[in-house]
Design a protein around this nucleic acid. Structure first.
Lengths: 208, 208
DNA sequence: TAGATTGTTAATCGATTAACAATC
DNA sequence: TAGATTGTTAATCGATTAACAATC
């Protein structure tokens, strides 16, 4: 099954909202409720669920627990997926601390840096290795996904090493776009771009 | 002029690449070069530039300096735009330290928190105020954009206060989607979603 | 039943790409 | 000139929304 990118993003978001609902004792949710919480239309929610083949078969809203499990089967790997972070500066540490514990099937299991003050220590709850040991640790710890949080000037070199080490997916936090082979999935996640986007539309709104 | 969202994002990216080129002594760049650096097609670059009405009028590539200035006129506010961050935990501090200095016309000028150990101090180079003083500081420091980096459970309350204080654009780093009035521009910037997206496509690739 | 809700197709909208004439 | 490059229109692709039949 090939899901549209945007649907994949929303499924991730729906799931977290559903988990929240359950935590608040709400076991069922209507499409228009889920839509309202995400600032989208109820049709879009229903279409996304249609695409993943999920149907409530009742008119009493979707069963949160059931839908969470259906989304989980799609998004999660049964045995989990291991993540490594390259660069343990402010951003790398914050991302690691922030991320870990949020998703049970997705864990940051190793960090990498070149600063001797950071290597061979536990930082933000994760073992930090020297970057030169990347390939070994990736193999040993079965890491398939990497976050790049190193200085921008190192981004493309880091990306190359990650690809060589067998990484299959990259989330690039640096402001320099990188290039990877077709078989590696890349997501550019650039804060500056989004800040400037907000600024542009604020400016636009102020002019009309 | 109303530019497509995606074009705005790319313009921000082009500009940073062009600045890099200049820093490396490269004064002109072809559409296919710029495209290669961003993993897109040369046609897309040319079309974006067409949309902003820029033309090189030569076949020697675009003049980096000139294009940077054209993009600046579109994206930047002449007098700059001030930004406030709510939440000075790991993430808020990292974002502040990371962001400031990167864009001359966009500066984080104030931070907010409720923790007395954080308020009335300079953190990550920025004055940190108590959140209860939000409205005053926003007015006094002429803040138009806010970053939400507070705990997820506080996100919607924070958003409401920001809107009341007159904020015009929000970048939401928390994993809880928020709702704002039409006249406020909102960008959800959720790391978990993008990590799960990477994980999904890695899983997909491994299955074929 | 009547109203609310759902699932799905068709239509629309927005973004990308193909095709090509114009220019250096 | 010939090849490379640019700017622009038309076609395609992907994502959202409108419309509506089916169901509780």
């Amino acid at each position: 099954m090939k899901l549209p990118e945007k649907t994949v993003e929303r499924l991730s978001e729906y799931r977290r909202t559903l988990l929240n609902c359950l935590a608040n004792g709400k076991t069922h949710i209507y499409s228009h409720e889920l839509a309202g919480l995400h600032n989208i239309t109820a049709v879009q929610v229903r279409r996304d669920l249609m695409l993943i083949g999920y149907s409530s078969m009742k008119k009493k809203g979707y069963d949160a627990q059931e839908l969470i499990s259906v989304i989980g089967k799609l998004l999660d790997c049964e045995d989990g997926l291991n993540v490594g972070v390259v660069g343990m500066g402010n951003l790398g540490r914050a991302v690691t601390a922030y991320f870990n514990g949020k998703r049970p099937k997705l864990n940051i299991v190793a960090a990498f840096d070149v600063d001797p003050n950071k290597t061979n220590r536990v930082i933000a709850g994760v073992n930090c290795y020297h970057f030169k040991d990347l390939a070994d640790v990736v193999k040993k710890s079965n890491i398939e996904i990497a976050i790049i949080a190193s200085p921008p000037s190192t981004a493309s070199m880091v990306a190359e090493q990650l690809v060589n080490a067998g990484i299959k997916g990259i989330l690039n936090f640096t402001t320099i776009p990188i290039t990877v082979p077709d078989n590696v999935y890349l997501e550019e996640y650039d804060m500056i771009t989004f800040m400037e986007k907000v600024a542009y539309f604020v400016k636009q709104n102020s002019m009309k």
